[in-house]
Computed example of a mutant assay.
Amino acid sequence: MKKRKIELAVISDVHLGTYGCHADELIVYLNSIQPKKLILNGDIIDIWQFSKRYFPASHLKVLKKIIGMASKGTEVHYITGNHDEMLRKFSDTSMGNFKITNKLVLNLDGKKAWIFHGDVFDVSIQNAKWLAKLGGYGYDILILINSFVNWCLAKMGRERYSLSKRIKNSVKGAIKYINNFEKTAADLAIENDYDYVICGHIHQPKKERYENKHGSCLYLNSGDWVENLTALEYSFKRWRIYHYNQDKLSPFFVDEDLKEMDLNELIASITDKGLDIETIAEVIEEKKTKKS
């Protein structure tokens, strides 16, 4: 299978070493892309909850895959998060194409992108780390329970259900925390003249433009590979959120944006065998109609 060539991919909150990690799905995703840069935006390895008794082969394969991508020319930036904070002592370390850092600033087609994990905004981590760690264990248990519930639902032929999402969306405190997190990140980015601010940490994939009296910026969150299975992709000067459960291995531009692309750009972006031929035909025919 041919790989999709993209400028930049961002993943975060993989939590290797925990029961909730969807390592197999992440390997499938990484096998489907060929990015020039791969940003690992924190909590890739869950050192907080690391146990010698649980680190499956699939989790090791993810690490091997990432190292393999670096050895084949992909520029890999590992940005540390709170669950892998022990790696912060190695910040600014480089090993070939593999770099460890605490934050990253990139120039993307003349626009500045500010990338960091986001735990710096979390008061519980700054002031009561033991409470944050306890919450991490509780979240892992909730994911385990959810896995069993979804197994039962699958047997009954019903759709999957996310307990954690239900709790986040129904508890006012959680909603307020997420909104404050996003607004704080965006306001700081605008204050420092960044065009994009890219975070992880809160397991909430999002792409939204924020504005205040000083300007505007695009806030992006890569989500996670525990419950949402999402990533951020940048190509042709645009960002999109990749959803594994919805997109699978579909190409980068199977959406309305196809209609705005140059025909040569469209053909260049089509590298996946699973592309719907009817979709290609419709878009190309529409291009021809516009030209005539």
Rank of each mutant, 00 (worst) to 15 (best):
M1F: 07
E7Q: 09
L8W: 01
L8P: 00
H15N: 05
V28G: 13
S32A: 14
K36G: 07
S51A: 14
R53M: 12
F55H: 08
G68Q: 08
M69Y: 04
G73R: 11
T80E: 02
H83I: 07
L87C: 04
L87S: 03
L87E: 03
S94M: 12
G96E: 10
K99I: 14
L106H: 07
L106I: 05
N107Q: 14
L108P: 01
D109Y: 04
W114N: 04
I115Y: 00
I115N: 00
H117Q: 06
D119K: 02
A128F: 14
Y139P: 00
I145Q: 08
I145T: 09
L153H: 10
L153S: 07
K155T: 06
Y161K: 09
L163F: 13
R166F: 12
N169M: 10
N169P: 02
S170F: 11
V171C: 13
K183Y: 11
I190W: 01
D195F: 03
Y196H: 07
C199T: 15
K206R: 13
Y210C: 03
S222Y: 04
W225I: 04
N228K: 15
L232D: 01
E233L: 14
F236Y: 12
R238H: 07
Y242G: 00
Q246C: 08
D247G: 00
D257Q: 10
K259T: 05
L266M: 14
S292L: 09
